[in-house]
Simulated scan of single mutants.
Amino acid sequence: MYSEVVVITGVSSGIGRIAAEAFAARGCRVYGTVRSLGSTTPIPGVELTVMDVRDNASVQRCIQSIVDQAGRIDVLVNNAGVNMLGAVEETTLDEAQAVFDTNVFGVIRAAQAVLPHMRAQRHGRIVNVSSVLGFLPAPYMGLYAASKHALEGLSESLDHELRQFGIRVTLVQPSFTKTNLEAHSLRAVSPIPGYDLERALVSNALVRQLDSAPDPSTVAKTIIAAALGTWRMRIAPSGQASLLQKLRRFMPSSPVDASIRRTFGLP
């Protein structure tokens, strides 16, 4: 008998993949969603299933199939996400909408598909993977930061609405993690030359940060704690993320601003 039925989106690589493995190691029945089965390496103990969080029919079909097989869903981890590199001015509305379609509307689609089942069973946990950029700004990642800021507000409101049904929502806020984030980031397709110098500085700083960042296992442990442990609204993994959370809360805005510019190599 499995302890919990867990659905985690975006498990083809990075944090999602490691988290799926960790849930399976805990004895959970784990369904990991991917956009294409053919291009995904199997994960031991994880049942891979096709879902495109940008497509409502795909999300509904996937969730119903899981409920038909497992009988319930105890935990939904909204992990799927995309980054966007580019100045706000040079990012088209179509590009901005693409980021929000995955990072915000994808979360809404998955939650709306799962919640009728969680409400009927009178329990559940939704874990939304946010970022330190959900409470800090990031130059040349404005659309990504905006989507994570939106996710933070959405999650807190949703948690208030769902408590009456025995369902809680929590946020995990990782910092830089050794994944393929920079390589897989969307980039504004119509760059403005005036931003070239600073954009390159930020891109290079991001590569350096990712090269020296911890592997995803720390974030995966935090996701498991958020899903299966005592409820907390926000949980930052130990290390840089936890430190940044405290700095944002207690430090004056001017030193925080200066620290952000140093981190990204901006004068």
Rank of each mutant, 00 (worst) to 15 (best):
R54M: 08
R54I: 02
R54W: 08
R54P: 07
D55S: 12
N56R: 15
N56T: 13
S58I: 11
S58F: 07
V59W: 10
V59F: 07
Q60Y: 08
Q60K: 15
R61N: 15
C62S: 08
I63A: 04
I63V: 15
Q64F: 05
S65C: 04
I66V: 11
V67H: 15
V67T: 10
V67L: 06
D68M: 12
A70R: 09
G71E: 09
R72I: 01
R72Q: 05
I73Y: 03
I73V: 14
D74K: 08
D74Y: 06
V75Q: 08
V75A: 10
V75F: 08
L76A: 01
L76I: 02
V77H: 09
V77M: 02
N78F: 03
N79A: 04
V82P: 11
M84T: 08
L85E: 11
L85K: 15
L85D: 06
L85W: 12
L85A: 10
G86C: 10
A87G: 14
V88Y: 09
V88E: 11
V88F: 14
E89P: 04
E89Y: 06
T91G: 08
T91P: 11
T92Y: 02
L93G: 05
L93V: 15
D94H: 05
D94E: 13
D94P: 04
A96F: 13
A98Y: 04
F100G: 02
F100P: 08
F100M: 09
D101T: 01
N103S: 05
V104T: 11
V104I: 08
F105Y: 12
G106C: 01
G106M: 00
V107Q: 04
R109Q: 01
R109N: 13
A110I: 00
A111K: 09
A111T: 14
A111V: 12
Q112M: 05
Q112H: 11
A113H: 02
A113G: 06
V114A: 09
V114S: 10
L115Q: 10
H117C: 00
H117K: 03
M118C: 01
R119H: 01
Q121E: 11
Q121A: 09
H123K: 13
H123V: 10
G124Y: 04
R125D: 05
R125H: 14
I126T: 06
I126K: 15
I126R: 15
V129E: 13
V129I: 14
S130V: 15
G134S: 02
G134F: 02
F135P: 04
F135K: 02
L136A: 04
L136T: 13
P137N: 10
P137H: 05
P137A: 06
A138W: 12
P139W: 11
P139C: 08
